[in-house]
Amino acid sequence: MKPNFLFLKYCVFLFSIVLLASCSSDDSTETVTIINPLDNPFDGIPAGNPNGNFPIPAEASLEDVSNPTTIVGDGTPESCTGQVFIDAVTKGGKIVFNCGPDPVTITLNQPAKVFNNTSQEIVIDGGGLITLSGNNQTRILYMNTCDQNQVWTTDHCQNQDHPRLTVQNITFANGNSTNETEYDGGGAIWVRGGRFKAVNCRFFNNTCASVGPDVGGGAIRVFSQYNNLPVFIVNSTFGGKEGFGNSGSNGGAISSIGVSWTIINSLFSHNSAIGNGGNPSQSGTPGGGSGGAIYNDGNTMTLTLLGSHIEANQVNDFGAAIFFVSNDHSGNVIINESTIQNNIGGSWYPSYPGISAHADTDISVTNSTITE
């Protein structure tokens, strides 16, 4: 009975996507309800904070994939290979999967890379059934508007509004970027330029370089978003339970330089910043070990945490939950209807346990719990 149940569930999910699309508008203040197709997973735990109920702005919601550009697979698991998926990403557009009614893991032997001249919108939708795996050997997904190999499309590659990459209703597992040298960090996903968001996603056991003062993002690393607009992370899980956490030198789950984040109804737990020596690295150390869940560095940037839960993350140095350093002291942190608790190791200006920031950083906390 399981295949029939899952197929019915997938159909209901697709109907919900069409329904959401029919109700959308250009008003960024509109809020929507996101239906989570990963509410009965066969591994790990569901996507998102189960207690998160913060309203979702329309721009942070699911993208409509009712008219896909590419369908990966012909209805069987065997047809959904890593190379077929890589080829689909190369073409751009909206990508969905037809791999049968059961959950399927697609294993990659190299990263899928976005070409910047294929389409302005690139959406990868797993329908709640797909796991993309790096097999502990490779990063899974890469986009870089300033990488000439992926085609320059403007003379201001560090600040252009496209491609706009969305990953939704999908799991990223066992990504590993430790063999990457030029673009390090980001075990599962590495992004520079355009826009990026993740909705209804899970990130399990991804890893990047284990040491270094300014490398990180066991799951995701992001640079240079268009006009300093935020990366949206919505209804997503990083780790979630013991044995599923992500790790890297800094930012066990996510890492960035000069990027703002808006994180809504998401869960970060059991992620680790495993470097040591901080940034800059202390004498005799390789550096790193900050930001068990989140590592933000740069100047004017905002970390916004809404309806989210951060627990049981770990560091060797600073910021068991969050490391946030605004070099010119102009950045700020907003925490609303969220919980930060039981994170392990690290301290720095401990007005809020688990958060390391400059003493004069503007940290606004509303209707939230922040404890040891």
Rank of each mutant, 00 (worst) to 15 (best):
K2R: 12
K2L: 10
N4H: 09
N4E: 13
K9F: 08
Y10K: 15
Y10C: 09
Y10P: 01
C11M: 13
F15S: 13
S16G: 08
I17P: 00
L20V: 06
A21D: 04
D27P: 02
S28W: 08
E30M: 14
T31R: 12
V32W: 00
I34D: 00
L38C: 04
L38W: 04
D39C: 03
D39L: 01
D43G: 09
G44R: 02
I45H: 02
P46W: 07
N51E: 14
F54M: 13
I56W: 02
A58Y: 03
A60I: 05
L62I: 12
V65I: 15
T69K: 00
T70H: 00
T70R: 00
V72T: 12
V72G: 01
P77L: 00
E78F: 09
C80D: 00
C80M: 01
T81L: 09
D87T: 11
D87Y: 02
V89K: 04
V89R: 04
G100H: 10
P101V: 01
P103Q: 08
V104E: 08
L108G: 05
L108D: 04
F115C: 07
N116H: 15
N117G: 03
S119I: 03
E121Y: 15
E121W: 12
I122P: 00
G126C: 10
G128Q: 10
I130V: 13
I130G: 06
S133E: 03
G134C: 08
N135D: 14
N135I: 15
Q137N: 12
T138I: 14
R139M: 13
R139S: 10
Y142A: 02
M143G: 10
N144M: 04
N144V: 12
N144R: 13
Q150T: 08
H156T: 10
C157R: 11
Q158S: 10
P163I: 01
L165D: 02
T171M: 04
G175T: 11
N176M: 01
N176L: 01
N179K: 12
N179M: 13
T181M: 11
Y183K: 08
G186C: 10
A188Y: 00
R202F: 01
R202L: 03
F204S: 13
N206R: 09
T207R: 00
S210E: 11
V211E: 14
P213N: 04
P213Y: 04
G216E: 01
G217N: 14
S224E: 10
Y226I: 14
N227D: 12
N228L: 05
N235T: 11
S236P: 15
G243D: 09
N246P: 01
S249P: 15
N250Q: 05
G251V: 02
S255E: 10
S256I: 11
N265V: 03
N265A: 06
S266D: 06
L267W: 05
S269Y: 04
H270Y: 15
G275P: 11
Q282P: 13
T285F: 11
P286I: 02
G288Q: 06
G292L: 04
Y295P: 03
T302N: 11
L305M: 11
L306T: 11
H309N: 15
Q314T: 12
Q314K: 13
V315E: 07
A321L: 03
A321P: 06
I322M: 05
H329I: 08
G331F: 04
G331Y: 05
N332K: 15
N336V: 14
S347L: 08
S347Y: 03
I355P: 06
H358F: 06
A359P: 03
V365C: 04
N367H: 11
I370Q: 09
T371P: 05
E372C: 07
